[in-house]
């Protein structure tokens, strides 16, 4: 089943490496900084900053190292497959992460809010005891003690953003086709176009958030609607940002002459990630903005 296609080539086992332990240290600092910061301790900013700097540095060094190894040709088919499976499982765990957030949206909207309103039902024996006597179930909902707010019109910026991300899915595939066919100009153009679309998406998204806060009164404090809206769109935006950074790294590597039509795992991994982010957006558009 896993026939070793290169029988004389032992699997590449890297030498002892400082990056993992230092990256753990960086994440420790990030965690510590965050925990201090949310409790209004100023030292938190410094610890967070130190952690972030260290993390960025290690990521550069670690990825640089792996890219160096790849260029030196130490990776064979088996290593390549290992990376692919690793990336796929990582994306799977991300899928679970977003699925749980959608699960939360489902629970709040279809279980929690109707439950809270059910105490007021006309024939309910509990009606005299209802903690929220005037509450009715509807969506969007800011909760029985919430302030009023308006929601984002799905057919404005969100629809445009859907178009942007869907086209970016096409352009990245076009870039990939270029890479496979050895047309490097197409590859570069496709990548640049994808990044541009992604950045535009992010810009629109930021604009939408600021509108929500300033004009619509829709904030993190707007009950379950605001909470689920911002956590879902916020984490998606974070993933688009990460994806765009990774695409930019791919563009830089392309410029440097990396990737061959046969061997370009890193590029493929980033496209998988980008498509994943696309699909999440479609779900967001339907379940958060539209329905």
């Amino acid at each position: 089943m896993n026939a070793v296609t290169e029988p004389h080539r032992p699997y590449y086992i890297p030498n002892p490496s400082p990056y993992p332990v230092v990256l753990s240290g960086a994440l420790f600092l990030l965690g510590l900084g965050a925990a201090l910061r949310v409790n209004a301790l100023t030292a938190g900013w410094w610890v967070l900053g130190a952690g972030a700097l260290l993390a960025v540095y290690v990521l550069f060094a670690w990825f640089g190292r792996v890219i160096g190894e790849s260029r030196a040709g130490v990776y064979g088919l088996q290593e390549d497959r290992a990376f692919r499976w690793g990336m796929l499982w990582f994306i799977t765990s991300e899928v679970v992460f977003f699925a749980s957030l959608f699960g939360v949206l489902f629970y709040e909207r279809n279980i929690a809010v109707p439950w809270l309103a059910s105490f007021n039902a006309p024939h309910s024996a509990l009606a005299p005891f209802s903690p929220w006597p005037h509450f009715t179930a509807q969506w969007p909902n800011g909760g029985p003690a919430g302030q009023g707010f308006e929601v984002v019109n799905p057919w404005g910026i969100p629809a445009l953003n859907t178009l942007l991300l869907l086209s970016s899915g096409v352009t990245v595939t076009w870039a990939h086709a270029g890479l496979r066919a050895g047309r490097r100009t197409q590859l570069k153009a496709g990548l640049a176009l994808t990044i541009a679309l992604g950045v535009t998406f992010l810009g629109f998204q930021l604009h939408e958030f600021s509108e929500a806060y300033r004009v619509l009164g829709l904030t993190l404090h707007s009950g379950v609607y605001g909470a689920t809206f911002f956590i879902l769109t916020g984490f998606h935006g974070l993933h688009v940002t990460i994806g765009a950074i990774m695409l930019a790294a791919m563009l830089a590597r392309t410029w440097r002459g990396d990737f061959t039509p046969e061997n370009h795992f890193a590029f493929e991994a980033v496209t998988w990630y980008w498509h994943f982010v696309d699909v999440v957006w479609l779900m967001l558009f339907v379940f958060v903005y539209w329905l």
């Binding site: 800011g142 909760g143 009950g223 909470a227």
Partner: peptide, 27 residues
Amino acid sequence: ALMAGCIMQITDRHFGTHFFSASGGGD
């Protein structure tokens, strides 16, 4: 899923969300 939950706990504690609080429609 637990990681997502922990993030929601932190936002409920410090950033004013109502995932787990009835007054905002949460549970």
